[in-house]
Design a binder for these strands. Structure first.
Lengths: 286, 286
DNA sequence: AGCTCTTATGAATCATTGA
DNA sequence: GTCAATGATTCATAAGAGC
């Protein structure tokens, strides 16, 4: 089956994914519907049933992901009755039992998070971006996400002390030496596992789950041009739009019809641009 | 038993705490020895036995903490065999079963962590600060940790200084004038649950678990002057030194004798300063 | 064009009200 | 009582308007 660069499919990813072959995608990145007790909101899976709801779907993710691929899960537990709910950390444990490796936990620091004042709580300004893999040898293009060197590095390099110039072994004996002087003259540095992004939301018809910069960062990091990206809860299509712009093919799955239409409309321009340049890729189907 | 403002006790907190009465402390804050496979490092509890090792101790913490008190646990799981270890999130679940409320997870973003490069991993620049409570009604002084407003506000306030005040006062009814009134005297804002602190490490004889700014923030937030702070794994005494400076009484417990001596020496100056001003507090013992 | 200033808007929480 | 909906609170951004 021939597909365009980006494709939005309507349905429950549990069923839709059964049409796709094993080891198809290089990256699965998604911000699933959060657990919520209220019926009318998007999703509507209560927190205590969230893991049970998620696992059959992640089993499909595990199947369609390439051995060198990565699964990035953007999620954050809610406060319920004054406590952080535990369904997210229970999900991590369950996913490991399902066969996933819990490789890393990135922090998305939301710079302009929602205001508010409460008697015993500050504003919640971060979310988890959990990285899971099938194997320990996964694709990672670290150079693709390098960032301008921060002020800390400049300051540090200005005042190169004795310990910094001469290579010394770390005090705890970990074996990792530090040679700060090597960094002199560079203007780009590798990032850390903390991402500072605003919750930018140009889209008025859908409360975007994540800002485009978030999937962009992970798509650059974990895929090459022409690779395949899957977002099984694609919402208004942010992931596919970004993937298309970065010349990755993508599949987005969304349960709600109104979002599907929205996403398909948004994709037209990006899709057209790529077709102009004559690049077409194919996603394998069963 | 009469105690000075800050006191360092040598021993395993599991046993030392048995000398203290129920509901004694307003804040327990600590950065416990990390799980580690290597013998020679501090602690040396293997990851898979960490929860089992921790729970009897946290049972004592639960007992000696006041109902309005807070327990802050600074911890981060290590990478082992390419994966984030799960002992920390398993600890969260176990602590809840022990009776703790998991109120919040603060992120300590380490702004100036050393650069490093690994084939499939970036620098780990954050740690968890887990907040646990005995009850939902705990003490929290939000005003004590307000932070300067962001650049946006600063720019605006600077611009206001340049302008002629009289001229704007004459423009009655304009939105601009109204906003001036709102911002006058408001250069502080409430923080979020992400703390941006450098890993300041002036102490060379001990690889400090946390920089003084970390306990300082939580001590200001969760205690008043004269309240009691406990650090059951006090290391070189950072928590007690900070507590003394902030005029809180404190107890630090440390297993290793060389750290105990170090901590006691560091405290002399801070202790002396407080005694000069004639303030003495008492910590209840059984 | 560059400034300066305005305003919309966020996967938020809590307390209260109503069914 | 329990559960669901509503209103109040509040700040960092970006984009837009005005000079």
């Amino acid at each position: 089956m021939r597909v365009t660069t980006a494709e939005i499919k309507q349905g429950d990813c549990l069923k839709v994914l059964q049409d796709f072959a094993d080891n198809t995608f290089d990256l699965i990145i998604t911000s699933p519907p959060y657990a919520d007790r209220r019926k009318h909101t998007y999703g509507g899976v209560p927190p205590e049933k969230y893991v049970e709801w998620f696992l059959p779907r992640s089993e499909q993710f595990l199947r369609v992901l390439k051995p060198t691929g990565t699964f990035v899960l953007n999620i954050k537990e809610k406060v319920e009755n004054g406590e952080r709910h535990t369904f997210v950390i229970e999900l991590i444990l369950s996913l490991r039992r399902q066969g996933w490796l819990w490789t890393e936990e990135f922090i998305w620091h939301k710079k302009n998070c929602y205001p508010g004042k409460w008697p015993n709580r500050f504003r919640d300004s971060w979310e988890r971006c959990l990285q899971f893999n099938k194997t320990r040898k996964f694709k990672m293009n670290q150079g693709a996400v390098m960032v301008p060197m921060g002020d800390w590095a400049k300051t540090r390099l200005k005042a190169l002390g004795k310990n910094d110039v001469v290579r010394f072994d770390s005090q705890v004996g970990s074996g990792f030496g530090k040679n700060i002087a090597n960094w002199k003259g560079r203007d780009l540095a590798y990032p850390t596992n903390v991402l500072h992004l605003a919750t930018e939301c140009g889209n008025k018809s859908h409360s975007a789950a994540f800002p485009p910069a978030l999937p962009e960062w992970f798509i650059k990091l974990f895929t090459d041009e022409g690779d395949s990206v899957l977002d099984p809860f694609v919402g208004s299509g942010t992931t596919c739009a970004v993937a298309a712009r970065l010349r990755r093919q993508s599949v987005g799955i969304e349960l709600h019809r109104q979002y599907v239409e929205l996403a398909q409309q948004d994709l037209k321009s990006a899709d057209w641009q790529l077709l102009e340049k004559g690049k077409r890729y194919e996603i394998r189907k069963r």
